[in-house]
Protein backbone atom coordinates (compact mmCIF):
# COMPACT_ATOMS: atom_id res chain seq x y z
CA UNK A 1 0.00 0.00 0.00
CA UNK A 2 1.59 3.18 -1.12
CA UNK A 3 1.04 6.75 -1.96
CA UNK A 4 4.11 8.91 -2.10
CA UNK A 5 2.39 12.25 -2.27
CA UNK A 6 4.38 15.36 -1.49
CA UNK A 7 6.84 16.00 1.26
CA UNK A 8 4.53 15.06 4.11
CA UNK A 9 5.79 12.77 6.87
CA UNK A 10 5.24 9.10 6.01
CA UNK A 11 3.30 6.74 8.27
CA UNK A 12 4.17 3.07 8.81
CA UNK A 13 1.83 0.72 10.66
CA UNK A 14 3.35 -2.38 12.26
CA UNK A 15 1.10 -4.97 13.90
CA UNK A 16 1.48 -8.63 14.81
CA UNK A 17 -1.65 -9.14 12.75
CA UNK A 18 -1.58 -8.21 9.05
CA UNK A 19 -5.35 -7.75 9.26
CA UNK A 20 -5.00 -5.14 11.99
CA UNK A 21 -2.21 -3.37 10.11
CA UNK A 22 -4.18 -3.32 6.87
CA UNK A 23 -7.38 -2.29 8.64
CA UNK A 24 -5.64 0.56 10.43
CA UNK A 25 -4.22 1.70 7.08
CA UNK A 26 -7.74 1.60 5.61
CA UNK A 27 -8.93 3.85 8.43
CA UNK A 28 -6.12 6.31 7.75
CA UNK A 29 -6.96 6.45 4.05
CA UNK A 30 -10.67 6.85 4.62
CA UNK A 31 -10.51 9.34 7.48
CA UNK A 32 -7.45 11.38 6.57
CA UNK A 33 -7.16 10.99 2.81
CA UNK A 34 -4.33 10.46 0.38
CA UNK A 35 -2.01 13.33 1.24
CA UNK A 36 0.25 11.13 3.36
CA UNK A 37 2.67 8.39 2.29
CA UNK A 38 1.45 5.24 4.05
CA UNK A 39 2.53 1.62 4.36
CA UNK A 40 1.67 -1.28 6.62
CA UNK A 41 3.23 -4.58 7.55
CA UNK A 42 2.22 -7.43 9.82
CA UNK A 43 2.83 -11.10 10.44
CA UNK A 44 6.02 -13.15 10.69
CA UNK A 45 7.82 -14.54 7.63
CA UNK A 46 5.80 -17.79 7.81
CA UNK A 47 2.53 -15.90 7.66
CA UNK A 48 1.70 -16.32 11.33
CA UNK A 49 1.13 -13.65 13.92
CA UNK A 50 4.26 -11.63 14.53
CA UNK A 51 6.46 -9.02 12.93
CA UNK A 52 9.63 -9.21 10.90
CA UNK A 53 12.43 -6.73 10.36
CA UNK A 54 12.55 -7.17 6.57
CA UNK A 55 8.85 -6.39 6.27
CA UNK A 56 9.25 -3.30 8.43
CA UNK A 57 12.23 -2.09 6.37
CA UNK A 58 10.20 -2.54 3.21
CA UNK A 59 7.29 -0.58 4.68
CA UNK A 60 9.61 2.27 5.71
CA UNK A 61 10.99 2.30 2.16
CA UNK A 62 7.46 2.41 0.73
CA UNK A 63 6.30 5.25 2.97
CA UNK A 64 9.61 7.12 2.73
CA UNK A 65 9.47 10.89 2.66
CA UNK A 66 12.23 13.49 2.91
CA UNK A 67 10.31 14.79 5.95
CA UNK A 68 10.78 11.42 7.63
CA UNK A 69 8.63 8.51 8.73
CA UNK A 70 6.61 7.90 11.91
CA UNK A 71 6.19 4.23 12.83
CA UNK A 72 3.17 3.07 14.83
CA UNK A 73 3.48 -0.32 16.53
CA UNK A 74 1.34 -2.59 18.66
CA UNK A 75 3.06 -4.88 21.18
CA UNK A 76 6.57 -5.93 22.26
CA UNK A 77 8.17 -7.47 19.18
CA UNK A 78 6.60 -4.93 16.89
CA UNK A 79 8.46 -2.26 18.80
CA UNK A 80 11.80 -4.05 19.14
CA UNK A 81 11.76 -5.19 15.50
CA UNK A 82 10.90 -1.65 14.41
CA UNK A 83 13.79 -0.28 16.42
CA UNK A 84 16.03 -2.91 14.85
CA UNK A 85 14.80 -1.94 11.39
CA UNK A 86 15.57 1.72 12.10
CA UNK A 87 19.09 0.79 13.17
CA UNK A 88 19.60 -1.05 9.89
CA UNK A 89 18.69 1.98 7.79
CA UNK A 90 21.41 3.98 6.05
CA UNK A 91 22.81 6.53 8.44
CA UNK A 92 21.32 9.54 6.67
CA UNK A 93 17.83 8.09 7.03
CA UNK A 94 18.08 6.72 10.56
CA UNK A 95 17.57 10.07 12.26
CA UNK A 96 14.45 10.71 10.23
CA UNK A 97 12.48 7.67 11.42
CA UNK A 98 10.78 7.60 14.81
CA UNK A 99 8.84 4.88 16.61
CA UNK A 100 5.87 6.47 18.38
CA UNK A 101 4.72 5.60 21.86
CA UNK A 102 1.05 5.54 20.91
CA UNK A 103 -1.79 3.06 20.33
CA UNK A 104 -1.39 1.66 16.82
CA UNK A 105 -4.80 2.40 15.30
CA UNK A 106 -5.56 5.73 16.95
CA UNK A 107 -1.94 6.81 16.73
CA UNK A 108 -1.81 6.08 13.00
CA UNK A 109 -4.93 8.13 12.30
CA UNK A 110 -3.78 11.05 14.43
CA UNK A 111 -0.20 10.96 13.13
CA UNK A 112 -1.54 10.97 9.57
CA UNK A 113 -3.89 13.85 10.37
CA UNK A 114 -0.96 15.86 11.70
CA UNK A 115 1.18 14.93 8.72
CA UNK A 116 -1.54 15.83 6.23
CA UNK A 117 -1.32 19.43 7.44
CA UNK A 118 2.37 19.51 6.58
CA UNK A 119 3.65 19.26 10.17
CA UNK A 120 7.26 18.19 10.79
CA UNK A 121 8.16 14.73 12.15
CA UNK A 122 8.50 15.88 15.78
CA UNK A 123 4.99 17.37 15.72
CA UNK A 124 3.56 14.22 14.12
CA UNK A 125 5.10 12.08 16.86
CA UNK A 126 3.99 14.46 19.63
CA UNK A 127 0.43 14.48 18.33
CA UNK A 128 0.20 10.66 18.16
CA UNK A 129 1.62 10.42 21.67
CA UNK A 130 -1.01 12.77 23.06
CA UNK A 131 -3.16 9.67 23.52
CA UNK A 132 -1.03 8.65 26.48
CA UNK A 133 -0.66 12.18 27.82
Amino acid sequence: MNSSSSGNVGIVIVSHSPKIAEGAADMVRQMVGNAVPLAWTGGDIDGGLGTNVAGILEAIETAWSPAGVAVLVDLGGAETNSEMAVEMLPEDRRARVVVCNAPVVEGAVIAATESSGGSPLAAVKRSAEEFYA
Binding site: T113, G118, S119
Partner: peptide, 14 residues
Protein backbone atom coordinates in the same frame (compact mmCIF):
# COMPACT_ATOMS: atom_id res chain seq x y z
CA UNK B 1 -16.52 12.13 16.70
CA UNK B 2 -13.43 10.86 14.94
CA UNK B 3 -14.13 11.74 11.32
CA UNK B 4 -15.55 15.25 11.87
CA UNK B 5 -12.80 15.98 14.40
CA UNK B 6 -10.19 15.14 11.81
CA UNK B 7 -11.88 17.27 9.16
CA UNK B 8 -12.06 20.16 11.60
CA UNK B 9 -8.40 19.93 12.61
CA UNK B 10 -7.29 19.57 8.99
CA UNK B 11 -9.26 22.70 8.14
CA UNK B 12 -7.89 24.58 11.17
CA UNK B 13 -4.31 23.63 10.33
CA UNK B 14 -4.67 25.42 7.01
Amino acid sequence: HARPSIKLTQCAKG
